[in-house]
Design a protein around this nucleic acid. Structure first.
Lengths: 339, 339
DNA sequence: TGCCGCTTTGTTATCGATAACATCAACTAA
DNA sequence: TTAGTTGATGTTATCGATAACAAAGCGGCA
């Protein structure tokens, strides 16, 4: 906070409008009964002085806030931008502002973010599920002073509500998709599963669904490279060289799948004739490039909406613990054969 | 802010540790001279009670804050995630937390975000350049109570510092790249230029550079569709059908370029033999799919770093208006012929 | 012995708003 | 006329921290 010019407070506005601080406060919040004439005078004074309310003082005093804290693992993940749209579309009309923090899947960073955001006494906290959470973070959440909601995972944990897909279901859908097409030599390509626990659950679910059908899933997982296209490409190369017999690959997400496809094409491996491919999270990109990737899609915007609606309800009334489960849909592209 | 349990304040910690509020405050901030023994006792008390500082009160009283507000147009734009990494990498070690707001290129939303963030009296404000800014927003920025820095555009406006590429230069680079290869029937494909003023400047710069060479740029611009792959695909189709003579296309960004390439491939148009293509913003994706897109790259992380460093300096000392200009580099892919 | 200065801790006055209640005028109803 | 309402505005006491200064304890040194 640098010292540029004098800070305008309610007091200055009050003096200029010839009323008390309290009256100015009421006018600007639209509270209480104030005559039209006074209201007009106050507004004009505030405008002329360029008054900017100090939320620190306001929220401290009223113990209320219109700020909603959202903490997501990665802002570059296309996934979250759609969830966020849903959140904003629901909260902004109600006068709430969302402030976003990015944890980069790092528990330490997430903990500090939770602490920083809670210390501003927000109206609500929206957190991403499927992250390894530190003990400190858990403790902070226990002592939180606002409702907290889990996003991106319908398995709610200890929070007040959760909205997202079932990652177990996603794994099973992939298994079925491959099995229905008679594919049996199946591989999984992923990265950073120790960070992205949702992806990990999909992986484990796929693995056990296949195991139930007597199939052993081959895994190509790298914990140190990012969950991105380049990594998908690299791991696919490793996979194909080591296991040329593979018939199908499921990738952690669409970005990695696109990377993998780029290698398969270059290596002259035909998709889906020789190898079938499924990604996760239908993104606009996945359907606009040459290959239309078979993927699993869901209503991401709606996840955000449901989460925000739940938050509003919890703020208004009291309880409403619960879950909203996002429907998953396999989008048939041309990287697996249609049935 | 819901009423779950009693809120723990400095007072409760002080009582439990058998000291005054002030002592607790000093211990937890690491300020003043406090004996090791007292420090230990206070820390333990705070920990046992699960004390969470109230930043509203703290910042109000000290008129200092460790929060930095960042407002970006779109979190899904891969571009900003890298800039943000640079910002966080620089600010977090100094104990600052960044809170992000998303404006979606909407001036009204941006204005409300600026207002909301400034009303929390942040230590600094990082804004994206190249947005149409409302009069209210300008007024807020004039009366701001913290340093403000412009990102993503080295043309700083009225702010304290700016870090980013020169979009004029980018347009010229594209023009030269095409001209050097003897291409003369050139088109531009973009969207939402009334919102993304940086893109608009690149476009205008390209257009005038070509005009200087006696070439009339053909424009395919849609103001209502999003700046994404699907739009790139759609507009490219329109373009090619209406103007089959086109030899080169520059796209607003890599995502749109990938969409366009997908159409060109499907239509059996060979790249770069029949049509050369250049995108903007080398993204990891652009280099991992089948086609290696020729694009313009820059050190995005460094933009964030420079902006954050400038902020720290301005916070510490007083002045330091200035500019940091990000170097641009044409990355040769296989969508234009090498020279 | 008494004054000085250092370390450690406490006191008091804010920061800039809002909640809750008080006040006062005008007006209504009995 | 007089009490009772209602509407419009002001007063006082917080909210939970920190700044700035005051005070107490202690040893050193002339």
């Amino acid at each position: 906070m640098s010292s540029r010019g004098k800070v305008i407070t309610l007091q200055e506005v009050a003096v200029r409008a010839g009323v008390s601080r309290m009256t100015v406060s009421k006018v600007l919040r639209g509270a209480g009964n104030i005559s039209a004439e006074t209201r007009q005078r106050v507004k004009q004074a505030a405008d002329e002085l360029g008054y900017l309310p100090n939320n620190l003082a306001g929220s401290l005093s009223s113990r209320k806030s219109r700020m909603v804290a959202v903490i997501i693992p990665s802002i570059s993940d296309i996934v979250f931008s759609e969830v966020l749209s849903g959140i904003n579309a629901t909260l902004r009309p109600e006068g709430f502002q969302t402030f976003i923090g990015e944890s980069l899947f790092d528990p330490q960073t997430e903990t500090e973010l939770i602490r920083a955001m809670l210390s501003f006494r927000p109206a609500g906290l929206l957190l991403n599920g499927g992250m390894a959470r530190s003990a400190d973070a858990e403790k902070l959440l226990t002592r939180r002073n606002c409702p907290a909601i889990q996003l991106w995972d319908c398995d709610g944990g200890a929070l007040d509500f959760s909205a997202g897909p079932s990652h177990e279901e996603a794994g099973r859908l992939v298994a079925n998709h491959f099995l229905e097409r008679g594919l049996r030599r199946i591989a999984y390509v992923g990265a950073e599963l120790h960070k992205d626990l949702c992806a990990r659950r999909r992986y484990l679910s796929l693995k056990s669904a296949l195991a139930a059908a007597g199939i052993d899933l081959l895994s190509m997982i790298c914990e140190v490279r990012p969950r991105q296209a380049v990594t998908g490409r690299f791991l696919t190369e490793q996979l194909v060289l080591a296991h040329p017999e593979i018939e199908a690959i499921h990738f952690l997400n669409d970005a990695m799948a696109l990377g993998g496809l780029s290698y398969l094409h270059q290596a002259g491996i035909s998709v889906p004739d020789q190898i079938s491919v499924i990604g996760f999270n239908g993104t606009s990109l996945a359907n606009a490039v040459r290959t239309r990737l078979t993927t699993i899609d869901m209503a991401r915007t709606e996840i955000g909406q449901k989460a925000a609606q739940a938050l509003l309800q919890i703020i208004a009334a009291e309880p409403m613990p619960g879950v909203w489960r996002a429907a998953l849909e396999v989008v048939q592209g041309n990287t697996t054969v249609p049935i």
